[in-house]
């Protein structure tokens, strides 16, 4: 970069030389900013490319990819001498391999087992499986932590406790300890819809309005009904597919 600047701008005296060096520093910093932006965009794009699986619970292979991606992304940012491709190529390779492996493991149970392992039952009918705990290198206290986290205080209430492939503990209670459901009571509660925001902080969300088959005029009418003079007065207006409206004005208060 300095050589480029020297060729582009001929030097005229010491002051100009000093200015040139400052100019080169600015250009270098600008390059770093651009490189960072490119790497950031590539990591975001890459993780989006691998899909939502990557963002939720991580399986061992996904966890490995996430760790490696964060390390790889740093290399071209820390050392300007390393070409951007030096970080991008491994990034593209890793993310492609991850997508390919997830596709293969979806097709093959053996590959899935190899990559993610199996869920392991650690409590069965209120009894710890000590051998399984040993093989998982877990203690009974670790499982008790997980049970408490799941809101279970009595081990004898547990029908099954399973360590899932992502390391989480799933707890299945005995039938007598299962929470009551509407079905048990033979009642028919009304369905609950999925609320979508139609107006958020004074802004219409056209996509959601179209999804619910409403018009902008209908939304404005709803806002007026709830006492808003303009859309700017609305903090949030939601509507679910059962027709339930939630309205909150910017100054506070819900209807």
């Amino acid at each position: 970069m300095y050589l480029l600047a020297v060729h582009t701008f001929p030097l005229y005296g010491e002051y100009y030389s000093y200015s040139l060096i400052r100019f080169c520093e600015v250009i270098f910093l600008l390059l770093l900013v651009i490189r960072t932006a490119i790497v950031y965009a590539a990591v975001i794009g890459g993780l989006r490319f691998t899909g939502k699986r990557q963002l939720g619970e991580l399986s061992p292979s996904e966890f490995a990819v996430t760790i490696l991606v964060s390390e790889l992304a740093c290399i071209p940012l820390q050392d300007a001498a390393v070409p951007l491709l030096g970080g991008m190529v491994p990034l593209a390779t890793l993310l492609s391999v991850e997508v390919l492996l997830s596709y293969i493991s979806r097709r093959s149970r053996h590959i899935r087992r190899l990559l993610s392992g199996n869920p392991c039952v650690v409590i069965k009918d209120g009894q710890f499986d000590a051998q399984m705990l040993r093989s998982l290198r877990l203690t009974a206290e670790d499982i008790l932590d997980g049970l408490r986290f799941a809101g279970v205080t009595k081990i004898e209430d547990v029908r099954y406790a399973i360590i899932e492939t992502n390391g989480q503990l799933s707890v299945i209670l005995r039938a007598m300890r299962q929470p009551l459901t509407a079905d048990d009571l033979k009642t028919k509660p009304s369905e609950v819809g999925m609320p979508l925001a139609l107006v958020s902080e004074g802004k219409l969300i056209d996509y959601n309005i179209r999804q619910l088959g409403k018009s902008e005029a209908w939304v404005r009418e709803q806002c007026r009904k709830h006492g808003a003079k303009t859309l700017d007065d609305v903090f949030l207006l939601t509507l679910d597919d059962c027709g339930n409206v939630f309205y909150q004005q910017k100054t506070g208060g819900a209807a």
Binding site: L95, V99, L100
Partner: peptide
């Protein structure tokens, strides 16, 4: 997504 991954891999 799979096709993109294969294309990306082959390109690399």
């Amino acid at each position: 997504r799979l096709v993109t991954a294969v294309v990306l891999m082959v390109s690399v």
